[in-house]
Amino acid sequence: MADPIDPSGLGRLLSETMSALGQFGGGPQDDVVPPEGVGEAADGMVRAAVAPPGRVTALALDPRVMRMASESLAEEITRAVNGALADLQEKAAGAVPGQVDLGGLGDQLRRIQEDAGRQLTKFTDSLIEAQDRLARQGGK
């Protein structure tokens, strides 16, 4: 006779799989605030803020910069935006979790797959056995 089926076995395997995948993916993304890059130019009179995927979210100009030649002002705005993009890139690189042990994750998932195969085999064997018993009882 087959071993009794552990009804929580499949749920446990699913939980283990999700946990293993969570290690790879870094977990839920709902709580994550995207980084923001900030840059300044013209001695702080031009300030820019950017957010992924490279959008300018704010541009602040001190009224004194309006006295600058348009070419100079354009250069300072460009410098502030580029500084903000560099800051964003640095912050985004720092937000990436450490290296994932793909070999370890693969081993974990392989073990979970093997456990799931054994559980499904037990479940199928039990169903076949129950079907055979019902057929024998119906023949009497």
Rank of each mutant, 00 (worst) to 15 (best):
V100H: 02
G26A: 03
K91D: 06
R47Q: 12
A80N: 01
P97G: 01
G39D: 00
Q89W: 11
A20R: 06
T78D: 00
R64H: 08
V50M: 08
E71P: 00
G138C: 00
A49I: 07
A41S: 15
P4K: 13
A92R: 10
A48L: 09
Q137R: 13
V46N: 05
A130S: 09
D3C: 00
A93D: 12
G138I: 01
G106W: 13
P34L: 14
L73A: 05
K140H: 03
M1L: 14
P28L: 07
G117P: 01
G139K: 11
L21S: 01
R55K: 13
A86S: 10
T124F: 12
G22H: 06
E40M: 12
S126M: 10
G117L: 12
L61Q: 05
G37D: 03
K140Q: 04
D125P: 00
E114Y: 10
A84T: 04
L61E: 05
R67L: 15
G83W: 10
E40T: 15
S19F: 05
D30V: 02
D3R: 15
L102V: 14
R118P: 02
A130D: 04
G83C: 01
G98P: 08
L102N: 02
L134S: 01
K91Q: 14
T57A: 03
G11P: 00
L109E: 08
F123V: 10
L10E: 01
E71V: 14
Q131D: 02
S70H: 11
R79G: 00
A58S: 11
S15A: 13
L10Q: 01
M45Q: 15
R12A: 04
G39M: 07
V81C: 01
S72W: 10
V32R: 15
D107A: 14
D31F: 12
S19Q: 12
L134A: 09
T78L: 12
A20K: 07
Q99A: 11
A135H: 07
Q108A: 08
G37I: 03
I128S: 03
A84H: 07
S8T: 11
